[in-house]
Write a protein that binds this DNA or RNA. Structure first.
Lengths: 309, 309
DNA sequence: CCTGGCGCCGAAAATACCTTTCAGTAGTGA
DNA sequence: TCACTACTGAAAGGTATTTTCGGCGCCAGG
């Protein structure tokens, strides 16, 4: 018709608005824009994240224009209104942020802000898990699981940080009804290792593969006929000489602030978890009720008052 | 402040809301939600892209609830209102589309071959790390680090699996010259907590946030004026009542074979590592030589023979 | 130089959407 | 059974967005 009843601009596209091609679209359409609209478009393309945080009024103010102009620009860019442009802006900002994320693989520095520390640490440990999973010999793992599941008795050796990993494994094995002991004291470990024989399992955890305090008891167990397993980052290390089965953990590069113990622990725990689940699968008939029972028993520790929940 | 003039819910975090940790946060907070809110949270976590396209009214209708409930849920998730949740949703959808999708891994089954167990476990733990990192409140973390670095004495409480995490932290802190103790015995923990006062730090680790054995000593320390920190998966749990600072760990879904303890441990260890590195940064002058010294001391344990190497 | 036409622009009205209040209802413990 | 608490949605109350509408400046022609 002749009169314009509504300022509905010839929306250049009937298609649903673009996701990330926004900057390009701004460039394409800029020549056909009026001065004020260009200012808005420029602001939007230049700082999507910042603009996404603004209301219509805010953006108008920031660009020295009016709300109406902001809405008009949104329309021209292919969105029904500012509300939708804003959503697209938030999405764009997120994509940009995600693209930049992998850049933080750098080492953790002394002056890193705490937020970077969190990100870097999480990424390094994730990498460490992936490496370990990729490098784990499933045949050896399978054999270790079989030995554990059938064992009369299980002794675990670890000192320092590895001691905690050993305790973790033992805690879990006990929960599904196996007989397991963790030894942190090398003397007692050796003393007990003498008791082991065929059908028992001895498991040593050492990142360096050279920890004498852990190798000794494993050697004794080995010589007494027990099945010996080593979880180590050095499959060629001394500990491997006395191990029937070797499970290799990954060795992440360590830095000044991040001692090797940190990544080796992550790696070791993954192996330990795999062992546990493997054993639980194989002894499922017995393990399932045992797990349920121990869970139930703990539930009452939360709240001293008796009764359900 | 007797009457509640406004329905302002105790927003669990004062920090700006999370970007991509939304699914994790939903899981974390779901237990503390009412039925209607759970429906909303579920819809939001299940279809971020779809929900981002809806208005409050639309989402309320889709979930069979009211606008008020939608807003309440948004608040609980840490956003000022629905508008902001919607923006975050759009951002999340964009990230997922960009390939960063959390990739829902299937549950570990009883008859999974061991190779699958390794893969799935590694993936779940990686996801757990990512969730935790994304959900960590850096302001609280920063404050906790500052408190630890300046502490006269540090007591750590944890029982069961969390006990090992506590020991891990203490081992590390000791290595850089801080005075720290891990308590697994609740009675001794309380006895010692009485000794704490302003300038000391008490740190409790409990996934459920309801472990009485851990809450008690923390409460005592809190009442004696110590700075109290909680590492928990339930920031709304009882333990938070006595914690000056709360560090939230992520809650992965647990299955029959994979008890909650497993993923909570991964999560807790990441937090603990972050604390440690933060403290090491702040006390670098003292920490660096201490780390080097303890490393040196250990080197001689590998090989009993004296001399270099 | 003046005048009319044209299109850009923003103030303010109109609308849509979001937030808050409030009262009804169901569930819970005494 | 009754009192009490907590959850919930309808509707009132506010903001943010969209639309309308008139002013203003630029330009061409008189």
């Amino acid at each position: 018709m002749s009169s314009k009843l509504k300022e509905t601009f010839n929306t250049p596209e009937a298609t649903p608005p673009a996701p990330a091609a926004l900057a390009a679209k701004v460039r394409t359409l800029a020549p056909s824009m009026t001065r004020s609209m260009q200012r808005v478009a420029e602001a939007v393309a230049g700082d999507p994240a910042g603009c996404a945080a603004l209301t219509v009024t805010g953006l108008a103010e920031r660009t020295g224009t009016s709300e109406a102009t902001v809405v008009r620009t949104s329309r021209l860019l292919g969105y029904p209104g500012y509300r939708d442009l804003r959503l697209a802006l938030a999405a764009l900002a997120a994509q940009q942020a995600a693209g930049r994320a992998p850049a933080v693989t750098a080492d953790i520095a002394v002056d890193d802000p705490i937020a970077d520390v969190v990100t870097k640490l999480a990424q390094e440990e994730q990498q460490c898990l992936a490496d370990t999973a990729a490098g784990l010999d499933t045949a050896q793992l399978e054999a270790a699981v079989a030995a554990l599941a059938a064992a009369r008795r299980i002794d675990v050796y670890g000192v320092g940080a590895s001691s905690l990993v050993g305790q973790d494994l033992v805690q879990k094995l006990l929960r599904i009804g196996l007989i397991a002991h963790a030894h942190a004291d090398p003397h007692l470990a050796v003393t007990n290792a003498v008791q082991l024989h065929s059908g028992d399992v001895a498991l040593a955890i050492t990142h360096s593969g050279r920890t004498t305090d852990v190798i000794e008891p494993l050697r004794v167990a080995f010589e007494h006929g027990a099945t010996t397993v080593a979880i180590t980052g050095r499959p060629d290390g001394e500990v491997a000489q006395y191990a029937d089965l070797v499970l290799t953990t990954s060795t992440a590069r360590e830095s000044e602030l991040r001692p090797a113990a940190m990544s080796s622990r992550t790696s070791q725990l993954l192996v330990v978890d795999c062992l546990f689940i493997g054993v639980a699968q194989r002894t499922y008939e017995a393990a399932a009720p045992a797990l349920a029972a121990s869970y139930e028993a703990l539930a009452h520790r939360h709240d001293p008052r008796p009764g359900p929940r």
